[in-house]
């Protein structure tokens, strides 16, 4: 078998905050009504818990993020995607849903450091002070769609894979030494 390659091969930048491209990361888009009963049980069986509106819930090595009233983003180890897709297919066999492997459609970044929030404040029209602790915020970063949440003392940001280079570029610019707010 061949090894999957993330969009930027783990590029890193040290400014007043540290930017790291991470991955490859397993991701599944799951579209389903949140109140469908089999959903919660299937997720639980697969190690996820159903997040509240605009929240991300974390399990042992996986998370479930609320993307819209009928869409979740499941984040998990890359190697576990196939099995989880199968688990969803069987658990939700009788439930109207759509599960798609989007692991390779995304790029993931970590923004770390005491002033990590300043990096996002320069790129996203989001009031970070009012962000709830486990809030997943979908927004734009400069000119592209992005989603981010606070995690492990920093932020995790997800974008589309094709614009990973652009996202790294704007993160570098925003985190450049001397550009602290």
């Amino acid at each position: 078998m061949h090894n999957p390659v993330s969009a930027l091969g783990g590029e890193m930048f040290e400014g007043f905050a540290t930017i790291r491209e991470v991955g490859p990361m397993g991701m599944i888009t799951l579209r389903c009504k949140m109140d469908e009963k089999p959903l919660a049980t299937t997720l639980k069986k697969l190690g996820f818990s159903l997040p509240d509106q605009r929240r991300i819930s974390h399990g042992k090595d996986r998370s479930a993020g609320w993307m819209s009233p009928d869409e979740l983003l499941l984040i998990l180890p890359y190697a576990d995607v196939a099995a989880t897709m199968e688990g969803l297919a069987s658990g939700l066999a009788k439930t109207h849903h759509l599960a798609a492997d989007v692991s390779d459609a995304r790029a993931m970044f970590r923004i770390e450091g005491e002033k990590a929030d300043q990096v996002l404040a320069k790129l996203c029209p989001v009031d970070l002070k009012t962000l709830a602790p486990a809030e997943l915020r979908r927004t734009r970063a400069a000119q592209v769609a992005a989603a981010f949440w606070a995690q492990d003392g920093g932020y995790t940001l997800v974008s589309f894979r094709s614009v990973a280079g652009y996202v790294m570029g704007i993160l570098r610019h925003a985190a450049a030494k001397g550009a602290e707010i």
Binding site: L123, A142, F160, R161, S162, V163, G165, G169, I170
Partner: peptide, 16 residues
């Protein structure tokens, strides 16, 4: 123009 100059003037979509 803010950060939108040079390499990051506009998002460039790249295929694998």
């Amino acid at each position: 123009a803010g950060e939108a100059r040079g390499e990051i003037f506009q998002p460039l979509r790249r295929t694998p």
